[in-house]
Design a protein around this nucleic acid. Sequence first.
RNA 1: GUGGGUAUAGCUUAGUUGGUUAAAGCGCCAGUUUGUGGCACUGGAGACCGUCGGUUCGAAUCCGACUAUCCACC
Length: 378
Amino acid sequence: MSKFTLIKKCGAARRGSFETVHGTVQTPAFMNVATCGAIKGAVSTLDLKEVKCQVQLCNTYHLHLRPGDENVKALGGIHKFTRWVGPILTDSGGFQVFSLAKLRNIKEEGVTFASHIDGHKIFMGPEESMRIQSNLGSTIAMAFDECIENPAEYKYTKDSCERTYRWLVRCKNEIGRLNLLEDTVNKDQLLFGINQGSTYKDLRIEHMKKISDLDLPGYAIGGLAVGESTGDMYEIIETVEPFMPAEKPRYLMGVGTPANILESVRRGIDIFDCVMPSRNARHAHVFTWEGCRNMLNSKYALDDDPIDTKCDCPVCRNFSRAYIRHLFKSGEMLAMRLAVLHNLYFYNNLTQRIRESLDSDYFDEFYNENIENLGRRI
RNA sequence: GUGGGUAUAGCUUAGUUGGUUAAAGCGCCAGUUUGUGGCACUGGAGACCGUCGGUUCGAAUCCGACUAUCCACC
């Protein structure tokens, strides 16, 4: 059971709300990435309300390897396991086939590839991915797809898109079957389809049309931010967007920078996820309303201001740039934790402020005031 | 005081029988990170090789003195 309500539009930009059995997500929204059931950087579900997190993303492939999806199911599912009260989306494992490129073998049934932990062979296809995600009991399961490398040959892309479509049909059938089983963790688990087609507009449109006919509760654009230019990425979004069902949430996978998010909302995207706020934070890069800072820079050694003077997150309310720089230089794990908390707050707050600007009809002004600064390095 | 060892980048060291712009790690400085293999990756600055003199076409390298420092002994 789910319901997406389109509250308001400003050009292509959409303000919506997405009701699920685990709670309602106000869109545009950013999903906080908790690959192994935890956000990297010593951040627990206890911290997430403080950083305005609405929804988390966990990873099918990683949780399948450790602790094992059967174990998570035995412990009551991913929500109970992690003590997160709110929606969780699970990625299908399809992207890992692409990103762990070594030794993969793609066939019609599915993909064989090597575990990044111990190298043992793993087989995953649409049915396997759905069964794992069903065991995890996430709110939203993602379709098992092939995320094509960039650049890609036209013929390869076309064949891959057709196979990804056939996989999607199999995902839909399998999740329908699993949701009806007696001991299923979440009988209302939703399936989102994923659009592919590399940078070929005709393939993108054709694929989007075909998958929208399957009438799934949500749709994602995949295979972007994988090496193409930002200009190309925006062009693909603009190309595909008119063919995405208006009454369903739209998720742009793996994107992106704060500027990418604002630009993509402007082009009709509702939901995002990205490792950037947490990964960059671990490497001392923090986002602010004036641009991105590298907290290792020596100019912060005696700087008593907070990371972002315009931020009211718990970190900026309490600590100085000089102290955070010191923590990074000293290798204290607190440095990562504070930087991750700040960056997640920044992303969640960014989408909240975008929502407010849509609610009160000043999205264009908000865009004009911030788009330049969000992309700056300071 | 006597004998022996060592002096090379901010630190710890490598430099083969003397042979072009003296090498590495750490540290320092900066950059990269887009459906996450958790302290990563890439690049940069930085040394007239303890001081003075000698041998030699040529010395971080051989010789002498001095200085500093370490070890042992008295």
